[in-house]
């Protein structure tokens, strides 16, 4: 455990220094107004085009095939399995965020689901009333006071921000599961996550298709959806964090509509 923490600190300080010194940052006021900071839009749009191509010829058909062939309860099981594998990492992130209660929930989920949940294929923890846990190192960085940074669309992965991209890399390389001495489980977490994503892509294919293929500018839609949802997630129970983002019904001229 100690090694993981040390590695994280080292890694983060290195990457963040590199990131933050190389790109401009968004002003605090513009961030508070919920504006979008996208200085790499040209690169991002190229990446978006690439991702759309991959989705069209590979990911979408594979995902639709997956949820057609595999019965829904099994898709559920694979989703639980992937979620369970991510729990040790979430325990670490919860501790780093100072959220001991959430760390306890993640621990309880991992212990219950790994044992009586058939190595994570079932989810008895939810039936026992243990709340769902969903966090990541990007959220930890948010708690530590790092601001969102620039919007980026990563190849194969999709929408994120420079801060969360650091989080993703750290989460992949410091997943405690991969620190197990038995080599074959290496990268199991990554494979399980891909299957998880295929399940979601297949299940909600109509909704995802409407964003990616039916909107006039799928890049702008994906960017807006991601940023709004991510900011909402990070605000958590802090309801007033969203106040500035609200639209005022009296602020617009509706004459003629």
């Amino acid at each position: 455990m100690k090694l993981i923490f040390q590695f994280r600190f080292l890694f983060v300080s290195l990457v963040l220094t590199a990131f933050l010194s190389s790109c401009g940052t968004q002003s605090a006021e513009s961030l508070a107004r919920g504006e979008i900071f996208d200085p790499y839009e040209n690169t991002n749009r190229a990446m978006h085009k690439f991702n759309l191509g991959v989705d069209k010829v590979l990911f979408r058909p594979a995902s639709k095939g997956y949820v057609t062939i595999v019965p829904p309860p099994m898709v559920d099981s694979f989703n639980y399995f992937a979620e369970n594998l991510s729990m040790p990492g979430m325990i670490v992130d919860s501790i780093l965020q100072g959220d001991i209660k959430q760390a306890g929930n993640a621990t309880a989920r991992f212990l219950l689901n790994s044992t009586i949940g058939f190595a994570g294929l079932a989810d008895p923890a939810t039936e026992f009333g243990v709340p769902a846990v969903d966090t990541d190192f990007g959220e930890t960085l948010h708690h530590w006071g790092f601001s969102e940074g620039a919007y980026v669309e990563l190849p194969l992965y999709g929408p994120t921000t420079t801060r969360d991209a650091v989080g993703i890399i750290v989460n992949i390389f410091t997943n405690p599961i991969d620190f197990a001495p038995t080599r074959p489980v290496d990268n199991l977490g990554v494979w399980a996550e891909i299957v998880h994503r295929m399940g979601d892509r297949g299940r909600y294919s109509d909704t995802v298709d409407s964003i990616l293929y039916e909107s006039a500018d799928s890049y702008a839609q994906a960017r807006l959806l991601f940023l709004q949802n991510r900011r909402f997630e990070l605000a958590g129970d802090d309801q007033d964090a969203n106040l500035e983002l609200y639209t005022d019904p009296y602020a617009i001229d509706t004459e003629g509509f």
Binding site: L224, Q228, T247
Partner: peptide, 12 residues
């Protein structure tokens, strides 16, 4: 889940 209908449609 935090995604605002007005902003989404203005963008569209």
């Amino acid at each position: 889940e935090g995604v605002n209908l007005l902003l989404t449609e203005r963008t569209e």
